[in-house]
Design a binder for these strands. Structure first.
Lengths: 217, 217
DNA sequence: GTAAGTTTGTTGCATTTGCAACAGATTGAT
DNA sequence: ATCAATCTGTTGCAAATGCAACAAACTTAC
């Protein structure tokens, strides 16, 4: 597996590659690898670090009292995770983060981003600004999932989800980053009922699909 | 109606009252009043300002293509709204903000909080830090609503919602900040089915309620 | 105080969805 | 290449929920 290019990581946007190494030391960064299925952060854990996925994929899971776990969100290469806990006051995670495949993570100390650096590095202001942008974006993406989840029917949820992907991928041929089972879990609907509904939608000529690739007609 | 005390506004925590006036001028703040039902920010509007509710209440609504509007979130005195759009790159709102009653809002220029002040006011660093905390908290609150919405049944959603309120209010006697109709809208469930389920739950002795006050047994 | 408008409670019926069980397809390990 | 494990498709049935329609309670404006 190959790490994402550091200049493609949104948090580092606008920071000159020459400064990046200095910066990474300044904000106490370190890398860690996780195997498929391994837990990165458990619910209730203290989260003083922001995670950046270098390769692989991370799922955010929430288990309720009865052991039903649901897939709240997923994070791919270049994206952040745990940042909302890390920048909050308590820094306690309310969800579990799991590597769904072999995954490498770059961790950064949140306090070094929130507080102005004693050395007043020029790039410090820039990374704080980027962090603001990304926190806003993450919040908006949760609002977007809330919109999807607020649809009454399975069909409504599927259409809303596929539309979101179409916008992101700017194409009519949409590859879902989740398997069928995972998608049903993500949308909190029954897997077989979802397959049934997808079949109906294909019969009615609304969409077409093959495995986890979809086409809106 | 009376404005909330400025020293109870989380964004201003740790800032000495003597500095507050100077700060409010420095970050281009202004107040505005809205009548019941009035739209504060429309979907697609540019949002360069962060809103703080001084009195009243604000609802975040999202309308889909067919005109079905759903209640994503609500904001009360002292709380922020629009901040996730204001700190993002595009600054474009994807939802509509509506005053549900007579409401006064204090608006602050987001750019003045994100970027370090040229005067390097001492309190500037503090407000930026508070902003980080609040952005994280807001994100976490959306994740919490996602958890509620991921429950399959009406009963599951109601229990999850009431539990959340109980935690927030630290009491077994819980006053919901939403009317029945609004609550059904917030949870994206049918109002009459919700009333039916609440009745069942009372019959089974799980909860008790009167209007929008609930008791968990 | 009255009337109009809004919110809440109730109930029968149609539809949707979850569930369970199983078969076929696909993937992964050795 | 083979076997085990996991994922996907299918279908009948039971249960949950949405919907519609209406009555009662409550609010608001004049």
């Amino acid at each position: 597996m190959k790490e994402i290019d550091y200049n493609e990581i949104p948090l580092f946007e606008g920071i000159h590659p020459d400064n990046l190494n200095k910066l990474l030391i300044c904000i106490n960064s370190f890398k860690k690898d996780f195997d498929k299925g391994e837990t990165i952060i458990m619910e209730k854990d203290k989260v003083p670090y922001i995670g950046i996925v270098l390769f692989g994929n991370v799922h955010l899971l929430k288990e309720d009292i009865w052991g039903n776990s649901s897939l709240l969100s997923y994070v791919g290469p270049g994206e952040l995770f745990g940042e909302n806990f890390a920048v909050s006051v308590e820094q306690e995670s309310s969800v579990t983060f799991v590597a769904v495949e072999k995954t490498r993570v770059l961790f950064l100390a949140a306090s070094k981003i929130i507080h102005t650096c004693e050395n007043a590095c020029s790039f410090h202001a820039r990374i704080a600004e980027n962090m603001f942008h990304l926190l806003g974006k993450k919040s908006i993406s949760y609002m977007n999932k809330l919109e999807i989840m607020s649809k009454e029917s399975i069909r409504g949820k599927l259409m809303a989800y596929i539309s979101t992907l179409a916008q992101q991928q700017k194409s009519k041929y949409i590859k879902a980053p989740l398997s069928r089972t995972q998608l049903a879990d993500y949308l909190s609907i029954n897997r077989s009922a979802m397959t049934r509904e997808l079949g109906k939608m294909r019969d009615e000529g609304i969409i077409d699909f093959d495995r986890n690739t979809f086409v809106i007609k």
